[in-house]
């Protein structure tokens, strides 16, 4: 059933390649670890109850001065155009463009790296599984290692996986410039002016607050459980304890919110936070947005023409 162009390779080459990969990833982990450890000792134990998504909202870069509405529309549009491309080459160009936004927006690179690391498991699966499982076409190039004839390595699968990884990373790198260059309240206000219902905007702001409160609560409960000698294992007892833990988290969260909401209402909350945001559109906003959308369209055209 295998009908692609087969290239026979000795098994030793596979072992060497695997060894090289292992060494490289080990090195990468070491470098990243030292970078992160350096960061963490610098700021000691971070306070998890304080939101950080818009930590660098103050700034003077091109992205900070950009009207949020234009920023949202342009970068979201760009992101959709990026995921519409198919070739790994287009994905790599998108990756470079996105990386340049991180630098232009003066965002700390380690936060963007953290985002990429969060996706590494899912994307790693693609890199590993796609070359081995894609359907073989007649024009495909297959690498077959002696001794492993039943497991041909399809280069087209690798290409597909690389395109996916490139696109995913490109969009992920856009996130920091998109979100961290204005306060979240301002971004959400921009969303409302773009037509998102007020209810939804309020929910985003409330839920974003609560997440950090509940994370802290969950952490406290976990410490309590550890002090009482709880060790998670693969057992029904563990699941029962976790079930009770979740239930308790829900109960506590509800009760706390009930009190907080009553307090908010007694202070005059009528379904929206007063948001004294002033939006002023300049020609530069239009120009900046236009440039990004044109870049995206250009990328898509390059992708489709290059493939043909």
């Amino acid at each position: 059933m295998v009908e692609g162009q087969i290239i026979q390779l000795p098994l030793v080459l596979l072992l060497a390649a695997l060894l090289l990969l292992a060494l490289l990833s080990l090195l990468a982990v070491k470098v990243l670890k030292s970078a992160f450890v350096g960061k963490q000792t610098a700021q000691k134990e971070p306070d998890w109850s304080v939101p950080v998504v818009d930590a660098d909202a103050e700034g003077t870069s091109l992205f900070h001065r950009w009207d949020v509405r234009f920023k949202l529309v342009a970068l979201l549009g760009f992101a959709f155009l990026v995921v519409a491309t198919r070739s790994p080459e287009a994905a790599m160009i998108a990756l470079l463009l996105s990386f340049s936004t991180v630098l232009v927006a003066q965002q700390p690179v380690y936060r963007s790296l953290k985002r990429l690391l969060a996706m590494s498991g899912f994307l790693g699966m693609f890199l590993l599984v796609m070359p081995l499982t894609v359907v073989t076409h007649p024009e495909d190039i297959l690498l077959v290692f002696s001794g492993l004839e039943f497991l041909p390595f399809n280069l087209r699968g690798l290409q597909l996986a690389l395109a996916i990884v490139g696109k995913a990373c490109a969009v992920a790198l856009l996130m920091e410039p998109l979100l961290a260059t204005a306060s979240l309240a301002r971004t959400v206000e921009g969303l409302t002016r773009l037509g998102v219902p007020e209810k939804v905007a309020q929910m985003i702001l409330l839920a974003h607050r609560y997440i950090f409160v509940f994370l802290e609560e969950a952490r406290r409960m976990k410490t309590g459980m550890q002090v009482r000698g709880f060790k998670p294992r693969t057992s029904t007892e563990t699941l029962q304890v976790m079930g009770n833990f979740l239930g308790m988290l829900f109960v506590r969260s509800f009760e706390r919110t009930h009190r907080v909401y009553a307090a908010m209402q007694s202070r005059g909350y009528r379904g929206r936070f007063p948001a004294p945001f002033y939006f002023k559109v300049t020609a530069g906003d239009w120009l900046h947005a236009g440039v990004w959308l044109l870049l995206g369209i250009g990328l898509l055209v390059f992708d489709r023409l290059g493939a043909a």
């Binding site: 997440i211 509940f214 976790m242 833990f245 979740l246 829900f250 969260s253 379904g271």
Partner: peptide
């Protein structure tokens, strides 16, 4: 709209739960 804060609570709990790992 009366229920909004409670929906926000479950949203946040849903978020926190997805960070909890079971061995």
């Amino acid at each position: 709209s009366e229920d909004l804060p409670k929906v926000a609570v479950v949203t946040a709990s849903f978020f926190v739960t997805s960070l909890i790992h079971v061995p």
